[in-house]
Design a protein around this nucleic acid. Structure first.
Lengths: 110, 110
DNA sequence: GTCTAATACCTAAATCTCTTAGGTAATAAG
DNA sequence: CTTATTACCTAAGAGATTTAGGTATTAGAC
């Protein structure tokens, strides 16, 4: 597992990108997908996930659709048009940041 | 410039690594060195820098030496033995985190 | 000469993100 | 029938950083 502090500032980008690549997803599914993609190195906590999803929705970057499976609620999230264009920016920004960091730390990432 | 949130959790690692590579340095010098290495993309604020230096010193990772230049004070920081061994860990951890991120975001860094 | 930018140290309140620690409830597995 | 997993959620607290101060010396421009 990684130090949780390193995750700070990257959660929104992760959520947006995973939603872009996978399409419609619900919260719990996102945590599982990230766990999978990261070989269990990145474990999103619900206390961080749900507030962030709500925030992204409030900002108009995500839209929701509530589905009932039997008696169970499931909230699906999808990127809005605005959200889609932001993903690109955010990912580029993060990649750029990573490259800058590798310069400062004088490490090679290949 | 990068989103400042991305910097969170990486400041200690940056300071430690720059000190390892450059040897004895003072606070202001560190900000300038990081600015240089990052092509002005990473600008350390003093409000973050000095408390972090003091914390690292309190933890025994850095030791200081105060020098007077005329009437001006300059505080040099050097890694302790303990500090040196931690740098490696921290840099490895960050590189590992970056690799994990690139998997999750499905981007290539080469 | 004097005004400004750069050098050089520092602290403290506010902010922002996330963790921790709860709460509720349905379904699956043993 | 008991536990793990699925599935949603909130709120208090912690931790790192920003913002916004404060002090003072030295160098450069005009």
């Amino acid at each position: 597992m990684h130090s949780p502090e390193l995750l700070k500032g990257t959660l929104q980008t992760i959520i947006l990108k995973v939603l872009k690549d996978h399409g419609r997803m619900y919260g719990y599914e996102i945590t599982q997908r990230v766990k999978e993609l990261s070989d269990s190195r990145l474990l999103l906590t619900e206390g961080a996930l749900y507030p962030t999803l709500h925030k992204l929705e409030a900002e108009g970057l995500l839209k929701t659709e509530t589905v009932l499976l039997g008696k169970r609620i499931r909230k699906y999230y999808t990127l809005t048009t605005e959200g889609k264009s932001l993903v690109r920016e955010r990912v580029n920004e993060l990649v750029d940041f990573i490259k800058t960091m590798s310069n400062v730390l004088q490490v090679k990432l290949a």
